[in-house]
Simulated scan of single mutants.
Amino acid sequence: MNRFHEKIVIVTGAGSGMGAATAVRFAQEGAHVVLAGRRKEKLEEVAARCKGARPLVVPTDVADPDAVQALIETAVAHFGGLDVLVNNAGVAVPGSFTDGSLDDWRKTMATNVDGVIYGCRAAMPHLLASNGCIVNVSSVSGLGGDWGMSFYNASKGAVTNLTRALALEYGSQGVRVNAVCPSLTISDMSAGVSEDAALMAKFAERIPLGRAAQPEEVADVIAFLASHDARFVNGVNLPVDGGLSASNGQPQLG
């Protein structure tokens, strides 16, 4: 497939995990990809995996509104426009509600919510010009609660409903806004879970497909939502969860 030939795509949090897989997927389909993230060396490693493309590496902290504005302006100046924004950058600070610090709260919201808002605001004029689209990376944690993840739940819940609101506001103007909501996905962020065999077994019990997702499996869905194939899909928060959200929460019987 070559669905994104000559399209300009920005992916935040592109240095690892779902962001890296998403950047590579878009590059494979002909896009000019802009890789944004805090660690330049990681971005350059991902850029080397974008075979046949000419990715642009722009080190960016999405919690800084000026840096995000500069990211968008740099991408547009370099490639001549913008077609797709993937807001993937995120952090998770586990812990109970009362044990978590206010600094943890601010860090979580600054990256997971403020960063998405900064990106959408800065990109919107260019996406309106191109009839482009936004794909936000929310989470199943933005659709329901977790034990010991209240700050993360709040941040991803905000992304989920922001996605709906922007879809309403900008759909009639030609810009679609959707989100993916992955369950546990193998990445640097989830290493503490994925390296714990007993904990992974508990996840496998709850996920009908019996395993965690691979980053590429989420990237495939992001690419679909950004493509012409999804041209009438707007305001969707799509679970990419192996069937986890199909359950009503009761245990398997028999």
Rank of each mutant, 00 (worst) to 15 (best):
Y118K: 12
S139Q: 01
L162Y: 14
I117F: 15
Y152H: 08
H126S: 05
G119H: 01
L127N: 05
W105C: 05
W147G: 15
L128I: 13
L168S: 11
H126D: 06
G145S: 13
G148L: 09
S139T: 10
C133G: 08
V113D: 07
G142C: 06
A167R: 11
A158K: 08
P125V: 11
G145E: 02
S150C: 10
V116D: 00
A165K: 10
N136E: 05
G148V: 08
M109E: 07
T160S: 07
T111G: 01
H126I: 11
K107S: 03
V137D: 00
M109W: 02
M109D: 04
T111K: 04
T163C: 06
L128Q: 04
V140N: 14
S139V: 06
V116K: 02
S139L: 04
R106L: 01
S139R: 04
T111C: 03
L168H: 14
S155Y: 05
C133E: 11
T108D: 04
Y118V: 07
R106S: 02
N112W: 03
A158T: 09
A122T: 14
N131F: 13
N131P: 01
M149K: 15
G115S: 06
V135H: 01
A122D: 15
R106N: 07
G142I: 07
R106I: 00
A158G: 13
L162W: 13
Y152R: 04
A123G: 10
L168P: 05
R121D: 09
G145A: 14
L168K: 15
G148T: 06
G171V: 02
P125G: 05
